[in-house]
Design a protein around this nucleic acid. Structure first.
Ligand code: SF4
Ligand code: SF4
Lengths: 137, 137
DNA sequence: TTATAATACTACTACAAAGTAGATAAATAC
DNA sequence: GTATTTATCTACTTTGTAGTAGTATTATAA
């Protein structure tokens, strides 16, 4: 019951880019500040650039920064960019097509948490996260 | 954001054993009825036997059945037997040790769904699942 | 113009989860 | 006793995610 590592990384990186959004940051900085594997990050960030969440500029003084306002980036956008399946797409017992009229045994118990997670993912923006500088990232 | 395949399989199998608990069922029957890979199931069921959730008897008329009353088997027991980490053990952004006094950026948003999932896993027993025979497993 | 700091690309390795195959051991119906 | 039905054991293959390595490309400061 967890996100993929890649999703975790993406959330942490984007949070960092938002928290220190006065300037852009190189992959190397993100790698050092967040303790994430450098080469893996380069791949991931290239992907986030392609998906339009991040802008990149090369050369000296280049680096990465958010491509949109932080209040326009929802958590579900991040999951989608990464390719992490959303709750609505692949549900708890692994059945593909499922709805309340053809429920699995767990449906009644799972529906409330499921709805809560979905709401949280769709309603939460980067801007609405904790931005206390003390918060770990 | 999902359970491991093995956990999904375990929940489905145990639900089946409970629903049709008047007799025991061979791995072969479970394999056919639930459309799960036979060899993989044998391994998994052996594990569930070792963990004390299921009893097995060999030979003709043998098979598998629940080792406890269905109202004594909670979902979290199943996850634990499978080795799936619970919410409390590994949290949303992958930090190991985390508490409200040293939160990650997502903590405030994640806490409610997290609590709801944990409550659901600890409170839900096999007996409390939907047992309408129409429910898919 | 040139050295340098950065992203982007291609290809590989490492590991764990999922799935497969074949042989062995136990219980029981006959 | 024996054949058959069942679980159990050991070992392998496949697949997907995570992580690594080296090179090419781009931009800019000097
Ligand atoms: S029936 Fe409900 S809980 Fe089960 S897989 Fe479908 S939506 Fe999810
Ligand atoms: S701070 Fe809260 S949400 Fe973040 S990892 Fe810890 S318990 Fe989970």
């Amino acid at each position: 019951m967890h996100f993929s590592k890649t999703t975790e990384y993406a959330i942490r990186v984007l949070s960092y880019l938002h928290r220190y959004s006065s300037t852009s940051h190189s992959v190397n900085v993100l790698h050092q500040e967040l303790n994430l594997p450098y080469k893996y990050l380069t791949k991931m960030m290239t992907e986030l650039v392609k998906k339009g969440l991040v802008t990149a500029s090369r050369g000296r003084e280049g680096g990465l920064s958010l491509a949109k306002n932080a209040d326009e980036i929802h958590l579900c956008d991040i999951l989608e960019a990464i390719g992490e399946p959303l709750e609505s797409e692949r549900c708890i017992l692994g059945f593909e097509k499922c709805d309340a009229s053809n429920p699995c045994a767990l449906h009644d118990q799972w529906a409330p948490p499921k709805a809560m997670i979905e709401a949280m993912l769709t309603n939460t923006t980067l801007a609405s996260l904790l931005h206390d500088k003390e918060t770990k990232l």
